[in-house]
Amino acid sequence: MTPRTGSAAGSTLAFVESPVQLLNVLEWAHTVAPRTAQEHAESAVPPSVRTRHEAAADPAGEQVDRAAEARTRAPLTPDALTVVVLSPTDPMTRGQLRRMAELARAEGYHVRWEEARGGASAPFQTIGGLTPLLRVARRVVIGDPFSRYVQLLLTITRARDLVVVDDGTATMEFISQLARGERLVRWHRRGGRPGARDIVFAPVSASARRRLTPGGNRTVEVFSSMPMETVPEGVRITANDFAWTRSRFGPPRITKGADLVGTSLVETGVVDPDRYLEAVASLARTHGATRYFAHRRESSEKLHRLAVETGLEVVRPDLPLELIARRGPIGRTILSFPSTVVHTLPLALAGTEVKVAVCDIDPSWLTDHASPRAQGFLSGVTGTARDVHRLSAVAHTA
C-alpha cells in the first residue's frame, strides 16, 4: 500500500535509494525545519568540532553560521516533505530502508515506498506515478546524483531548487566532476570504456548534469559532511553535523574493547578478498576487536569466511552505523578502512570518548580490475578525515 502524500506534499520531494541517503535527508530536514533556540542549543556540536568541520565545508575557508544560513532557506514543515524510497532489491538494504522509513514517519514526514525495481514494467509504473508530483514540486532532494533512476527523474521535474544530500564518499567525487564539467561516473568505475548502456543513457546523464549546475533562477545546494576541495561556482555547501542523530539518540554506553567496521571494497572489485581478510584479522589481533559491523553490501559468503577465520562476531546492523554507534553500546575504539564513516562517526559521536581509527589501503591489496584512480581516491578519503587516528596499512605476509 502506498502511503498518502498529504495536501502539501508537492512542496519538497526527496528521492532515496539507500538507508544513509534517507538518514541524511532527515539531517537536512532537521536544519531547515523551524526550531526553537533551546532545540538549537541542545543539538549544538562542541565548538572545537564545529569550527574544524564547517571551515572545511566552506570553500572560502570561513566558518559557516548554520543558524543564519537556515534563516535564508525556505522553512520546512513535516507535511511539506514527501520521501520517495526507490527501493532496491538487496534484502539488507531494504531492511535498513524500512527501519529508516519508520523513523521518517515518526518525525511526521510522508514516506512513499516504490518497488522501483520489481520487474520489467516497474520503472515505467514508478516514473508514471511520480510524474505528477515531480511537475508540481518546488524543491527536489536527491541522495545519489550518479543513479540513472534519479538522473531520469531530474529530466522531468521543473523544480528550481535542487538539494544533494550525502551518499557517502561519492559526494566528494560528484562535486569534483561537476566542477570540472565532466560526465558523472562513480569513482570505482573511472578509467574503463563506457558500455552500451552508458552510451544509450549518455543524453539523460548530460541533461541531469546540466540540471545540477546552478544557473538563472535554479539553485543547487549540497548538504554534506564530506570535505570539498573544489566547489563549482554557485553551488551552496551546507555542513551536515548530524544534529538530528545526536538529538534523537544517545549518548551511547561505551565498552572497553574495539569494534571494526566493514567495507564493500571487495564487492565493488577494488580490493582483493584474501588481502582484505588478512588485514581484518591483523587489525582484530592488534587492537583487540571482537565485533565486525558488516556493510550492507558485503556478501554472505565473505562474511562467513571472515567469521570463521578471524573469530570476530559479525553484526548485520538494522540501521546506518551512525545511528547504531550513537545508540550504543559501542567500543571505545572504532576501526575502519577508508570509507564514509571516518568522516561521519566523529560528528555523530561528538562529545563522547569514542576514538575512530582508520587503516590505509596498501596498493598491493588492489585488484587488477581496480580503477586507476582507486588508490588516490582512497588515500584522499583518509587524508581529509578529521578527528580520526591514522593507522599504517597492514603489511601483507606471504
Rank of each mutant, 00 (worst) to 15 (best):
R4K: 12
T155W: 04
F293L: 05
V204P: 04
I254C: 06
T157V: 10
P329K: 08
R197H: 07
D90M: 04
S300R: 09
V49A: 09
R4F: 05
R190M: 15
R197Q: 11
L212D: 00
S392Y: 09
L22I: 07
L152Q: 07
G269H: 14
Q38Y: 11
V136P: 05
V266G: 10
R50D: 10
V185A: 07
E17W: 03
G108H: 12
E62G: 13
R386M: 13
E353K: 15
A395I: 12
R218Q: 13
Y276I: 09
E278A: 14
V20Q: 06
L153H: 10
D360M: 02
E39L: 03
E115Q: 14
Y276F: 14
V354R: 04
L349K: 04
T213I: 10
V136D: 12
L277A: 07
Q96M: 11
P346N: 13
G192V: 12
R211P: 01
R35I: 00
R296F: 00
V83M: 10
R66W: 02
D274S: 15
P338Y: 12
R246V: 02
E313W: 02
E233Q: 15
R275V: 00
T31M: 14
L283A: 08
G328H: 05
D362N: 11
I334M: 11
P19H: 08
G10A: 13
L26I: 03
A374C: 03
R297N: 06
V308D: 11
R160Q: 07
S379P: 01
P88D: 01
G118H: 07
P232A: 10
R50W: 04
E353H: 15
T169Q: 06
R285A: 03
D318R: 13
R4M: 11
P75Y: 13
D161P: 02
E221M: 13
I199M: 15
L265T: 09
T397N: 14
R285I: 00
R52N: 04
R98Y: 08
H40P: 05
N24R: 09
S18M: 08
A206H: 10
T340N: 15
P132A: 11
A101N: 09
D259M: 08
R117N: 14
A395K: 15
V388K: 14
W244P: 02
R236K: 15
R4C: 07
R98S: 13
P194V: 05
M1E: 02
A348V: 03
D272A: 14
A385K: 07
G95Y: 04
R71C: 02
V231Y: 06
E102G: 15
V85H: 06
R158D: 01
I254M: 11
R105H: 06
P78M: 05
T77R: 15
D362V: 08
V136N: 10
P329T: 06
S364E: 14
R160F: 00
R158Y: 02
Q63W: 10
V25K: 02
A67W: 08
A243F: 01
P78H: 08
G262F: 03
